[in-house]
Design a protein around this nucleic acid. Sequence first.
DNA 1: AGCGTCACAGCAAGCGCTTTCTATACGGTA
DNA 2: TACCGTATAGAAAGCGCTTGCTGTGACGCT
Lengths: 348, 348
Amino acid sequence: MTVTLADVAARAQVSPATVSRVLNGNYPVAASTRERVLKAVDELDYVLNGPASALAAATSDLVGILVNDIADPFFGIMASAIQSEIGGPGGRAGGERLAVVCNTGGSPERELTYLTLLQRQRAAAVVLTGGAVENEPHAAAVAAKLTKLTDAGTRVVLCGRPPAPDTGAIALTFDNRGGGQRLTEHLIGLGHRRLGYIAGPEERTTTRHRLEGHRAALAAAGIEEDPRWTVWGRYDRQAGYEATLELLRRDPSLTAVVAANDSVALGACAALRESGLRIPEDVSVAGFDDLPFSVDAVPALTTVRLPLAEAGARAGRIAMGREEPPPGGIATVGGELMVRGSSGGPRG
Amino acid sequence: MTVTLADVAARAQVSPATVSRVLNGNYPVAASTRERVLKAVDELDYVLNGPASALAAATSDLVGILVNDIADPFFGIMASAIQSEIGGPGGRAGGERLAVVCNTGGSPERELTYLTLLQRQRAAAVVLTGGAVENEPHAAAVAAKLTKLTDAGTRVVLCGRPPAPDTGAIALTFDNRGGGQRLTEHLIGLGHRRLGYIAGPEERTTTRHRLEGHRAALAAAGIEEDPRWTVWGRYDRQAGYEATLELLRRDPSLTAVVAANDSVALGACAALRESGLRIPEDVSVAGFDDLPFSVDAVPALTTVRLPLAEAGARAGRIAMGREEPPPGGIATVGGELMVRGSSGGPRG
DNA sequence: AGCGTCACAGCAAGCGCTTTCTATACGGTA
DNA sequence: TACCGTATAGAAAGCGCTTGCTGTGACGCT
């Protein structure tokens, strides 16, 4: 049998109410009584029953963080930043909040399942990171769920994800389109005219926005795009490797490869090298995100830096109600072009 | 006001008990009744109250995963694997379990705090990943906490962490010592005699074990170690970069650098390159873990592959009671030496 | 001396669900 | 027809905590 509040109360010779108040520190208790209670708590090794407490108080100290892929540093960095802003003081009982990271694996169903689970647990806040899936029924289902969450008083923040209108969710959106555009403009400025593009999973907003930026830059420069120049794949190294091989097969005259993100770019580099091509002399490569390892690639990766940690921290603070949400509930976070060794003028 | 079980019951014209039984599916309910209830649930958008359910049933579907640094793929990969084994069916109510990842940031206090929080929530299981801190009072406190958790019926699994004797916790330990030893043996076999070592944070078991393996290999080869050859730092790229510069300053004649892990090794490579040294012609470099990016380094990193995903998956299954714990509650998971381009014979 | 004020402490009513035990209806059997 | 097993539904007692409200002395004021 576990120790309950009542046991502590008995031992300290006070009522359960008093013990609760000592533990929560939200009601005046005489110092001597408090001490007696704390002593009893200590002696009995009492641990509060979370569910009971949450039930009675109708609140919980859970904060959910949804990520697409926990093994990907892109999400890890954001999650870490969010969590660092949540762990601290601010809530009930001295304010330790349990920040939980939920890995959806990019699956819409799991996303919904986790949202329901968090709703069940009456989470204090939920932060959704990364791109959304562009699938009408699913998007509607998520929007409905988010609305219900915000209605129930749960603060919902989207970090690196497009706004969800009319759901009450605060959005911190990455300017993927603008970043993609500037990146390709840079390449075009170097003289490239034949650019391959390795896109991410087709149904993701992030994928679409980055690609749109790329195409906008192409269009602005009057470059007509060849459909063979775009290949779709996952957001990982392996996909980049394979896609690059495919790109090379389709059109060996490409002088640059733009990847959906840094991991993909790394795979692209590997494929190019194995094909006997030099970077950037033969082919330039560009990534996106500027993850920590990108600067260590050889040559270092030209990419777009997204302030993942900063955005995550801000999302965390907003989720905790410690920072004002942006006006209109929407803020756009820009990316910064990082020109490094992997991009140069085209050969010849 | 949120919808409660009673509301659903009223709408379906049955008792709350029946609704509960339909939802949990653990008691015979006539098909027609079940349908009526499900319809009401649907119409009212009813969501079970997690805390209330957990309180009444005296169980919870929370599973905690503790990691040192969620932004580090080393932990991300393990967490991902653990979680993938936990999400599935197996528990109450169709069995969705909420796997929560808690980021301790390597801090002993946060580790304890999280364990307490999980204990409060009456977690079904807890998996602790990564090396432990070697600090007597803290280790004792953690051991006591783990004992209490296992006593309370929570399954505790250590993944990539040394065993915690007499706590009831199951341990899946990485053979860091053996891996470190084989790695250094490989370097010695290539002819290296002057090896720098970049160790991780001093108080971690992982750090100590890897270093012990390194030294064992040195000793076996009759190489006397120079204290200047060991530098300590964090487990990240930056630390590796700085440590390598320091190593070079202390003894420019080193022909190999062994790093505490792959991230550190990447930093080491950067520092060497910037110092005008070629890898592996001038200096060989070796890492540990074989994270996904390691094969993409140029040259590809010689390292020790740890089966993070496999070990994590196994830990997850054990935590869920779906796999027998190893005999004695302890299993050692070996590493595999991956010889790649970053190691070669010493110059001259 | 009489009374309003404080500062504390306790009582008791839930919070929303699960589950044991009991009630009922039905069909079959003797 | 009387009886009993089976299948299903309901009543009600909590699970362990929080909190609004109700004392109850002690103190200071007029």
